[in-house]
Design a protein around this nucleic acid. Structure first.
Length: 373
DNA sequence: GAGTTTGAAACT
DNA sequence: CAGTTTCAAACTC
């Protein structure tokens, strides 16, 4: 009955130990990796805002109408079952309703294969630091998968998913009046551009602000030590990719900078790509929009690949974070188990052959779908 | 704790 | 695909 919280064997052959979190008795159904050290957290009443926000811990939702079967529900969205700490009503996101949960998930993923992918993706580090937090990683090295669309919050409040995730806005964002202290959209772009091509002119962008932003980012990285997070893993590695801002509330933005209103926006963002082709595109190049080169191995490797770490610290080689090579990864649990969906990533042609990419994504991403024991 | 604001998700 | 509605979290009082 609680198969969801038990061990799963990933197609890759890895045993996934999903510990039952006392916070979420139901455990994880998405395939999140449990960092056992965290899942033991005795804290039952952590508020999202002030908890470490273990990716797999119960989010303590309070849904009333969604039955916790929509992405509105944080638990559901995070791939965990609701449990005690939640104050939801009419919740169906429970192991008992496993089938419903799974079918709903499937449905949602069919619509948007990336729906359950981690929202924040670290760009700079592919795997070298999935477990160990690399203190050198900075917000600038992470990106929100889809970007935000803020209009009034200036990306300065947690309404903003980028800000909430502790990452700067990027070209993926369509925010207005972005002041994201983790990195403004245009700034992020120009910064990266600068680092990358050193001449990158970001259209109507403030070259003048570049320095500013660099410094700012620098300061930020110090102000937000927790921003090491976003362990880079394939987009679907929910567990390890989730941001873990220990004390976000205390994370005080460095200081306000001149508001820089939006500028260039790439209209060519493919939101939820459905085709595997797009998948790989997203995985491998979609992010290139902001980080065109650093993610590419061919981007002058000998160049001591710079990541977007503003403070100049070496963050990590960008060994193409997304096209993870299992062998290279050394079969890290974290990775294999949740790389679920991109056939191109896992190089598992067979898995993708019999089902479409979305299904593949779902099945691999969701242990339960594999056939809960 | 109640009410408001906000933006993502869902819907049309 | 764009516009609208629904939703629940974030925020304010």
């Amino acid at each position: 009955m609680l198969s969801a919280g038990e061990n799963f064997i990933h197609p890759g052959g890895e045993l996934l130990e999903l510990q039952m979190d006392d916070d979420c008795s139901a455990g994880v159904f998405l395939g999140n990796d449990h960092d056992s050290s965290q899942s033991n957290s005795p804290q039952k009443k952590r508020r999202k805002s002030d908890n470490g926000d273990d990716g797999e811990a119960c989010k303590r939702c309070s849904c009333k109408k969604s039955k916790c079967l929509k992405l509105y529900c944080e638990c559901f969205a995070a791939g965990v079952y609701c449990s005690e700490p939640c104050s939801c009503q009419g919740c169906l996101n429970k192991p008992i309703h496993e089938e419903i949960v799974l079918s709903t998930r499937k449905q949602i993923e069919f619509r948007n294969p990336l729906a359950f992918a981690p929202k924040v993706i670290r760009m700079s580090d592919a795997g070298q630091d999935i477990t160990g937090e690399d203190p050198n990683n900075t917000p600038a090295s992470a990106r929100h998968k889809r970007g935000c669309n803020c209009k009034k919050s200036s990306c300065l409040k947690k309404y903003c998913e980028c800000y909430q995730g502790g990452v700067g806005c990027s070209s993926n964002c369509r925010c207005e009046g972005c002041k994201n202290t983790f990195g403004k959209r245009d700034a992020a772009v120009s910064t990266e551009a600068e680092e990358m091509k050193q001449g990158g002119e970001e259209a109507e962008n403030c070259g003048k602000e570049k320095e500013n932003d660099l410094q700012k980012a620098n300061a930020q990285s110090e102000d937000h030590p927790f921003l090491e997070l976003v362990p880079i893993t394939p987009p679907f590695d929910v567990s390890s990719s989730l941001l873990k801002p220990p004390n976000f509330s205390s994370a005080k933005p460095p200081r306000p900078t001149k508001a820089r209103s939006n500028s260039s926006r790439s209209s060519s963002k493919a939101p939820g790509a459905v085709h595997s082709q797009k998948f790989s595109k997203i995985a491998n190049s979609g992010l290139n929009e902001e980080m065109p080169d650093i993610l590419r191995d061919d981007a002058s490797p000998g160049n001591c690949v710079k990541t977007s770490s503003p403070n100049g610290k070496r963050v990590s080689p960008p060994h193409n974070a997304l096209s993870v090579s299992p062998s290279r990864k050394g079969g890290r649990k974290l990775i294999l188990k949740s790389i679920p969906s991109f056939p191109s990533l896992i190089g598992d042609a067979s898995s993708g052959s019999s089902m479409n990419s979305s299904e593949s994504a779902f099945n691999t991403a969701s242990p339960l779908a594999l056939g809960p024991s």
